[in-house]
Amino acid sequence: MSEPRLHGNDLTLAYDERVISRELSVSIPDGSFTVIVGPNACGKSTLLRALARMLKPSAGAVHLDGQLITQYSTKEAARRLGLLPQSSIAPEGITVADLVSRGRYPHQRLFRQWSAADTEAVADAMANTGITDLRHRRVDELSGGQRQRVWLAMVLAQQTPILLLDEPTTFLDIAHQIEVLDLCHDLHVSHGRTLVAVLHDLNHACRYATHLIAMRDGEIVAEGAPSAIVDETLVRDVFGLACRIIDDPETGTPLVIPAAKQRVVTTA
């Protein structure tokens, strides 16, 4: 099997003196929808940031397409790998289409600021995220769910084969969470993109991921297809939660049912 396009070897990840992960190795299978899960502060966002070259590893290296990711110019790297950060700031008064068009920056130059390919990429990204009708609205007037789709469209317009998403569903209500995840699923299935997302909800991860990475205390505890690795022992080891696993009646993927502390008596 050939080397995957994105992988990190023996990564030591730290913020100043505080070490999050030691000698962590990770491979992102090509064409997968990889989801990283784990309890708060387990280092999952840190790992994603290192893969996205936002955090320089104190030791070890991240490789992208057979080269050290640091050997690419930052613009060249941005043509291969896109990142949706946990939080971004929409400039005051910017329109939806204008914000999405900023995703084209790595494909532009000082005197080539808007090509036909740019127009097409922005139109496609807005169509795929269902925001075409919102294109002349101001981003600061939109709801949280709409805004998240706009940011996603901006990263899509970048047209990178690999997309990294840092908690794309946080702060969204359940319907918008599912909407964003369905969208990710479509991107992965019909556009053949490799997606890596950090998610909080284990059940969402099981339902949408083709490859799951479970982390605790900066280490990878298990990785593989959700149905192959998620069981009561893993959930207890990773999250410290007693639970039962049943088949998701919709998809057949593992569904985590947390154990009740005590029998809940319901009275009619």
Partner: peptide, 17 residues
């Protein structure tokens, strides 16, 4: 031009190159 992207946050700007 790059400065206006930094207004969206460092990570978003770096992600865009």
């Amino acid at each position: 031009r790059p400065m206006r992207l930094i207004e969206m946050g460092d990570e978003a700007a770096t992600g865009l190159g």
